[in-house]
Design a protein around this nucleic acid. Structure first.
Lengths: 192, 192, 192, 192
DNA sequence: AATGAATGAGAGTTCATTCAT
DNA sequence: TATGAATGAACTCTCATTCAT
């Protein structure tokens, strides 16, 4: 029998890779990074422990890749054409899309928030992460400047913090959190 | 030598208890809950591992007590006389005092934020914590209502989230964070 | 395309077999038996792990075959026509050829020495090896007897041990070892 | 009840330390470094796996310490007062004592030889070892010079190699090896 | 009250080997 | 013939907790 073709293998690898990352994301976000065991991830992904190491060289690398790919995905979504000015509706659109992502990518954001506040875990991703976050902040500042904010840098910090804080509170108790009315209030406050 | 009196003993116990809690707080916030070992705490508190268990029955209980006592201490500070109305200067005072505490009790807030976003760790304290947080939120809502906010509940959520988010961002990189100008911007936005 | 003839197939098999053995020898001697992985051998031989098992049924068998074929090759070289007597120049020739082989077949001798002193590894080859070594010793004893040694058995042991010891020391630090002057001293001592 | 005194603890620690080292030496030499598991060592020393790590911080460190302490012990025995000259009987005494140690400290020497020829294992101890071995060689050279050897450096190498080789052969098959008659032949050859 | 030696369950990781293709 | 995805047993090491003293 002929061996698998390279394409077949590539597909298998890509599928498995995603399965593992999905399983890990679910557990990391549900149980926390430290409380999630490689064993648990493997079981949820329905593979053997050993195979996981065929795809990711360590638990740390697995986390790193999940975070980095997640951030990049988000960045791609966030990119706004650097047009002359940013209208009110642009701002509203941005706020809407951030809130939308909060629920549609809940697990990723829970994991991400939790990574940020655990010094030991943050260190794992910090190398790659620092640069990316700087970029995001800059972009938001630029965005706010073009939308006419009098102090875009401070507003970027405030808005960034606000989003982080809302995620945080939302994730602690998703069912009980009035996401919709909070979103509306945010619009009232920041879009004039 | 006369044996120690009961009072002396009680005092020694109380001192040690605080020392252990302080050591644990420092390590929990600096290294993360999971990465902090009982051994490390005992060493920092300059006692033996065994003795630590004489004061706290487990690592989990130690965390729980640190968090609960910290929250209570904060609540005491926050209590505002339920006067008829809240003036602009009252609001400013509140914002100032929150920011002030961010730096003066940095370690506690770092730990607290990190507990909130780690489901496995949150579970340890969740029983007791839920009630307390509800209370805080209610209090802030009440406060904002009396200060004339048109939607005090939403504003309480927004302001609460904002404080959480700012802490979070501040703690990740305390030196680089423009705490002062962010504080001023918050005042501009929320105090009209 | 015509299918490969049987001869061609056989030739390919033989070539591959040697490539695998060469790769394994290099790694075994450079990294040690246990620290060498099947994966590493396969990569160095530029074949797949699976194919390796088509040629050798286990890592142990691979080692066994490398050692046995190496010894046999050496034996062939060593064979001396059982003439009546052995002259001084014969002895010198033997010593020279042993030393020559030390450097020309360094990898094999390194592996061989290391196998001898690792009980767990020795066990893998011991069955087949014992007999062969006995033979070598006998042959050397005979050789020395014919060269006029007063105690050929003991001299065989001494000379054998000396060669082993020199290899060992030489291999630990090939660049720093004064192989040439040691060889000359050995000749002075043993050839009178 | 009072806690143990420092002296009591020190004694306990010293005893256990030796027990663990003895168990490890036996297994390392009998099974080989890689084939010996921490579990096995702990079992033989009749302690728990965890406790072993209370005494030695890793398997590698355990090996390193066994080797270094063994070498030092040997060096102490070897030290010869740097008198003007070395007599025949001094040389004989040295040879005797080397051979004596071969059997009395068999396990250590088996381990030591095996470490020398396993590059991966050698690396573990190489840092500390290199210096020590240089010293030994120098000492033997000096010794031979004072005993009147015409080429002390080469003789030191030859004698060193001879001892190594004899150990090696002896250890492979201790029962069958004619240690006594080999020793006598060595004396005949090297003591004139 | 106080110590730290001791335990043991469970963690992350490696690797020879198998097997579907 | 040839591949490399997949397995699982075994490994080293960690740490909260207990307990004899």
């Amino acid at each position: 029998m002929a061996p698998r073709t390279k394409d077949q293998n590539k597909e298998i690898r890509e599928t498995r890779r995603k399965m593992i990352m999905q399983a890990a994301l679910e557990l990391f976000s549900k149980e926390g990074y430290h409380s999630t065991s490689i064993n648990g991830i493997a079981k949820r992904a329905e593979i053997s422990k050993g195979l996981l190491y065929n795809y990711f060289e360590s638990k740390e690398e697995l986390l790193k890749i999940i975070i980095m790919e997640g951030i990049m995905e988000m960045e791609n979504m966030m990119v706004i054409p650097p047009s002359e000015s940013v209208s009110k509706s642009d701002l509203i659109y941005m706020i809407d899309s951030v809130f939308e992502r909060l629920s549609s990518q809940k697990e990723f954001w829970m994991l991400f928030s939790s990574v940020l506040v655990q010094p030991d875990v943050l260190e794992i991703v910090s190398g790659e992460l620092g640069v990316v976050l700087e970029g995001l902040l800059k972009e938001m500042e630029d965005y706010l400047r073009r939308s006419g904010s009098p102090s875009p840098r401070e507003d970027a910090y405030v808005l960034g913090a606000l989003f982080d804080g809302i995620s945080l509170n939302y994730f602690i108790n998703p069912e009980g959190y009035p996401l919709e009315s909070v979103k509306n209030r945010v619009k009232e406050i920041f879009v004039r």
